[in-house]
Amino acid sequence: MKKKHYLIKNFVVYSFVACFVIGILLIIFINSHVKKDKIYSDQQVIHLTLHYIVEPELSGEDLKDAISQSKIKLLDNKLQQLINEDTISSVRIWSNKNKLIYSSNKDFLEINIADSDLKKALESNLTYIITKDNSNKTSLNDNEIIKFYLPITYNNEIVATYEVVKSYSDIKYHIKELTIIISVSIFLGLALLYTLLIKVIYNSSKTLISQNKALTKNKLDLEASYETLNNAYKSTIITLDRLQ
């Protein structure tokens, strides 16, 4: 009986640890996958939107050196709706000469990109960077932002790069929400499986114990029958010897 409880206890502990570890690994994997999918989806939507809003207004010459003031105002008006809807925070356009030729944020007039995220992205072939928003030095909140780096093609040639800044909070909230739903589903599923396995093991253990008792009883019965038969055989031999 002690052995039975020992085996069940070991199974309960080890299976719980296994289910817990599997659940954590699944959540980490799914969280990473959800994050990549959400970022990729936003990136494609933004790139497609800018392709149809911005690029028709610009020529190849605009993207090489500078954009005229009239076109800058036109782009400002077109992009303002996206900014107002919080689809994006700002858009910058960099030429292949690493020159800033457009910025929807007029406070950002940086020309040298030696230490900028753009340089890091271009050198590492990154399409996005998640970083801190340090633009507001007086703010107590150091909010995360995501910067997308999207190519602008003209006549099948990359002539410039979008640097699109967007708050990372929406993406993070989406990832967190899905992760919670998936985590609860995984742990409920594993808990159900764990409970069913314990029930199966418990019932199997009871069956084995019952069969073991039956076998033990049969063994004792056989031994008793053999002893009886053996005694009867001895008595018969003794009786026959006396008769002779």
Score class of each variant (00 low, 15 high):
Ile175Met: 01
Leu188Tyr: 11
Lys99Met: 08
Tyr168Lys: 07
Gln44Leu: 10
Tyr194Phe: 11
Leu150Glu: 04
Leu240Trp: 14
Lys137Glu: 15
Ile101Ala: 01
Leu192Arg: 08
Asn143Ala: 03
Asn77Thr: 08
Thr131Tyr: 01
His5Asn: 12
Lys137Gly: 02
Ile46Asp: 01
Gly23Gln: 06
Gly23Thr: 04
Ile93Cys: 00
Ala121His: 02
Tyr194Gly: 03
Ser185Arg: 11
Glu157His: 10
Lys176Arg: 09
Ile152Leu: 04
Ile175Lys: 01
Tyr173His: 08
Ile186Ser: 00
Lys217Ile: 09
His33Lys: 15
Phe108Asn: 11
Leu178Ile: 14
Asn143Thr: 12
Thr153Gly: 03
Leu150Met: 14
Ile93Tyr: 09
Arg242Asn: 13
Leu193Gln: 06
Thr207Trp: 08
Asn134Leu: 15
Leu75Phe: 03
Glu223Cys: 03
Asn218Ile: 11
Asp133Lys: 06
Val159Met: 05
Ser15Pro: 04
Ala121Gly: 00
Gln211Met: 13
Leu150Ala: 02
Ile152Gln: 00
Leu63Glu: 02
Ser135Lys: 12
Asn31Thr: 15
Ile22His: 04
Ile67Leu: 03
Lys176Met: 04
Leu75His: 05
Leu222Ala: 13
Glu123Asp: 11
Ser32Leu: 08
Leu100Phe: 07
Leu190Val: 04
Glu144Val: 02
Leu109Ala: 08
Ser68Leu: 02
Asn134Glu: 14
Lys219Met: 14
Ser205Asn: 12
Ile130Asn: 04
Tyr102Leu: 03
Tyr149Ala: 05
Asp115Ala: 10
Ile113Gly: 10
Leu118Lys: 00
Val13Trp: 14
Ser210Met: 12
His5Ile: 11
Asp115Arg: 08
Leu193Asp: 07
Glu163Ala: 01
Ile83Ser: 01
Thr179Gln: 02
Tyr162Lys: 00
Phe108Ser: 05
Asn105Ser: 06
Tyr162Trp: 03
Ile83Val: 10
Thr239Trp: 14
Gln44Cys: 09
Asn143Leu: 07
Asp241Arg: 15
Asn136Tyr: 09
Leu192Lys: 15
Gln69Thr: 13
Gln81Pro: 01
Glu223Asp: 14
Asp142Leu: 14
Tyr202His: 10
Gln211Ile: 10
Phe108Gln: 08
Ile113Asn: 14
His174Cys: 05
Ile101Arg: 00
Lys38Asp: 01
Ile145Arg: 04
Phe187Ser: 15
Leu126Met: 09
Val200Asn: 13
Lys147Thr: 00
Ser139Thr: 01
Lys176Asp: 13
Leu208Ile: 15
Thr179Met: 09
Asn134Val: 11
Ala121Ile: 02
Leu240Asp: 04
Asp142Cys: 04
Ser139Gln: 09
Tyr52Ala: 04
Ile238Gly: 05
Lys172Asp: 15
Ile22Gly: 06
Leu48Val: 04
Ile186Thr: 11
Asp107Gln: 08
Lys217Glu: 12
Asp42Lys: 03
Asp133Asn: 12
Lys172Gln: 12
Val34Asp: 04
Gly189Phe: 06
Tyr202Leu: 13
Asn31Ser: 15
Lys137His: 04
Ala160Arg: 02
Lys36Tyr: 15
Leu229Phe: 15
Phe29Arg: 12
